[in-house]
Amino acid sequence: MSAVNSLARPRRAGRSANRRPGRRPERMWAYLMVAPMTIGLSVFYLWPIAQTFFYSFTKSGPFGGHAWIGTANYRALVDEPSVLQSVANTLFYAVVQLAGIPLAVLLAALLNQRGLRGRSIYRLVYFLPVVTMPVAVAMLWRWMYNGDYGLINQLLSIVGVRGPHWASDPSVALYAVAAIGIWMALGYNMVIFLAGLQGIPTMYYEAAAIDGAGPAKMFFRITVPLLSPSIFFATVLTVINSLQMFDLAYMMMSTPGAAAGTANPALPQVRTVSYLFYQKAFVEHDLGFGAAVAFVLLGFILAMTLIQFRLQRRWVHYA
């Protein structure tokens, strides 16, 4: 899903003009050099897309084999309430993740001030969760979210608030998971914006200062519009990644004493589409239904990305 980046940035060196037409030995070398990757991608990625599509019209027997059942899996998608609920959960999660973007813009703008001391330390600290294994991050937060012994409720009790069981209370669990998501991605978005800010010429700010503009006005009138291509890029990426969220939900929902990923009371409110896919295909071994869910996910991602590219004309300024 990373190709999006190339759309948000000007292309680097294009096709060279002085490249010669392929001579025979060169052509042979070219085929040899692309062969391993072509074979590998075909076997493990390209053909599987077609196979998944085929599976989505079948029901897999207990001893392998796939019986053609037409569109039954897709019709079952509509009937099963967990599907619609998981689509709603995923959408909600993705929308909440977008709240992290203004936060990251603000942090980047603060960090970008000339002569600021300790910039590289701040950047290191904010980026730390990006390189940390999501499984470990989720485990840590689940411990902090613990209703009885968690740090969060302990801190809340100081100010006299009695916190809920964050990871298992259906009314708050998805918010709790979404907060972890924002925390994990903050440094990543911030770094994208830092790079974008470096491309804004200082003279705009100097001119605005002469006209008597204050910091707030400069931020909203100069920084935000000129940063909008980076903001767009981060938004598209955040949505694509959020729509596929699995690790955090999986880790938050597993219960001690049972196999991972089973029955937390908040599961219906936290289960994402990707989680549902995993559960159907690999826990309940219903490959056909799982394949249909995977295509729901694909359609969902394509639709959301398309909508964003449509909307971009209204607010993204390309200098």
């Binding site: 899903m1 053909w47 599987p48 897309i49 599976y55 729509l243």
Partner: peptide, 14 residues
Amino acid sequence: SVLMVPSQLFLIPQ
């Protein structure tokens, strides 16, 4: 096209 597709679409056949 492989780049554009979420990994869940490869996983079952893999």
